[in-house]
Amino acid sequence: MALDLTTAWALLLAFAVFVYVVLDGFDLGLGILYPFFPSKHDRDLMMNTVAPVWDGNETWLVLGGGGLFAAFPLAYAIILPATYPLIIAMLLALVFRGVAFEFRWRSTSRFSRWSWDMAFMGGSTVAALAQGMTLGTLLQGITVEGRAYAGGWWDWLTPFTLLCGVAVVAGYALLGACWLNLKTDGPLQERARWLARIAGLVTVGGIVAVSAATPFLETAYFERWLAWPGILEVAIVPVLVGVLTLWLARSLTSGKGPDWLPFVLALGLFLLCFAGLGVSMWPYVIPPSVTLQQAAAPESSQLFMFAGAVVLVPIILAYTAYAYWVFRGKLKPGEGYH
């Protein structure tokens, strides 16, 4: 494949979505794990581990959406109507969880704090579920006629999309638990490790189930993954998933090794899933109807933006890293930012 501008944009967008998953994944995961930490003390601490950075984390979602709009407007114009209820649910869920960061500290009654806890928990879970189901909808194929979505209004709701949704919820919970393992100590850390093992099991189960189902969704997927001799090349992805899974399990159960290791290994699992998605979907942006080239914005649009993006994205990564550096280390109880 020649590295033309459209391919470069596809890679850049994939990068933006992956950074979003890296950063907001654990962030949403904390909300998903809220039910397992009933005490106010633990919940305060959990929220404070991300309070200074959550805005920036969610901005990558805006870049993913905005970048798709700019570089592949046709894909944006088809995918969003096709997954309309999921997108609306995700946006409203993000409203609930986003405001909880401030509102929770402003509550004066037990009831209102409970309400914002529920908003954080429910919002995070629904957002993760909707993201997973959107991915599933895309993967199972979207019906297109002309330049518009032409499927039914419930196409997004199938056992496969639900499976993808649950897998993403579990995956984010795994990232959240590994993040807590990194940022806290004492009993909270103990519980986080225990939850990470459970979430890890469910996540890997989800990965296996989604991977097993995918080749049977489209013949193109089947040939990509299971036909000889290509299988020799693509098989490296599932093999690496197996290796990382064992390594993660060992690092979580032994309790030895640095606290950042499980988090990095969990991110590695996500990266492999991403690679797997790339193998399945390439060269389509909307399988099986629209290729990246068909959906691409004209060169003048892509070039104008690309010039800025190659300069700005590294700068953004630098100051984002700086913000994480400022708030690095274990969070001590009572070290409330609020």
Partner: peptide, 15 residues
């Protein structure tokens, strides 16, 4: 209109 307004909004996100 995406080819025109999309890049402007992408710049808003980036800058």
């Amino acid at each position: 209109a995406g080819p025109v307004v999309g890049p402007l909004m992408a710049y808003e996100v980036l800058t």
